[in-house]
Amino acid sequence: MIKLFLQRLVLGLLTLVFVSGIVFVTVEALPGDACTAYLGRMATGTRLENCRRDFGVDRPALTRYAEWTLGALQGDLGMSLKRNKPISDIIGTRLRNTLVLGLSATLIGVPIAIFLGIIAGLWRDRPPDMWISTIAIFAMTIPEFVSSTLLILVFSAWLGWLPGIVTTPPNAPLVEFLSDIILPIIALALVMTAHILRMVRTSVIDVMASDYVQMARLKGVPYWRMIFRHVLPNALLPTINLVALTIAWLLGGVVVIEVVFNYPGLGRLTIDAISDRDLALVQAIALVLAAVYIGLNLFADLLTLVANPRLRTMRN
């Protein structure tokens, strides 16, 4: 089992190396470099050359890649030319804010999703399921910027209950975000819940159709005991990995939500960095987000390994 986990860990790290490669190559392959982006229209002649020499952009790509990744391993993500600050300093609080947003949405969304998914699965094709599934389709398919906009329209513009736009500075203590963060959390949790509940529903339906559940009924196991002992452990196990994948995938949606709400997280920073053509910063953000994604998947793997007797008892 430990071997299995180590295997996953190595694979995860390998993936991260690939990610860094992809990001680096993409930025390299795009026309222009850090200096043309930095200098903008003044990027001509000696000024450009000086810049390139000063920041070492003229050195071979491989050297720069090695430097960049080795630095990243030690927590040094390089310098942002545009902002003239170490990137780790810029990202720090932004990452915190995004994680707070994502974590709160997860903590609220996942339990609700599991609960609703089980209900929908057990009452398959009957009214509770039809309501839940229909609403889930809406929540899942409507783009994040649309749902966010509607949330602002209703709760901020019409009802005036909550602020629609975050005005708190990025590095303010978390308490000050409390009222700002509610709508973004709802927007994010909505999509997440919808996706996950659909998976839980399918999984419950599959398990309910299995031989061992039929057998449990024929052994005279009372309904709810059967649900809790025989159905749920087996239905929820395979969803752990799917949940992690989904959450990670929704990181993309966070970017949009942050922009709509003007929430000072990593997502909005990304948009700013891209608008400023601050490529070093974009590279770093991509790497950090990928690391979060891979970490999340690893966590799910670990959880599955511990919870699944089939994997846990695997020898060698």
């Binding site: 966070v254 970017v255 990304t270 891209i274 987000l289």
Partner: peptide
């Protein structure tokens, strides 16, 4: 896997 680990929007935006 590596491509999937990078949020889709980041990539699109970058390009």
């Amino acid at each position: 896997d590596a491509f999937l680990a990078i949020p889709w929007i980041l990539f699109l935006l970058l390009i």
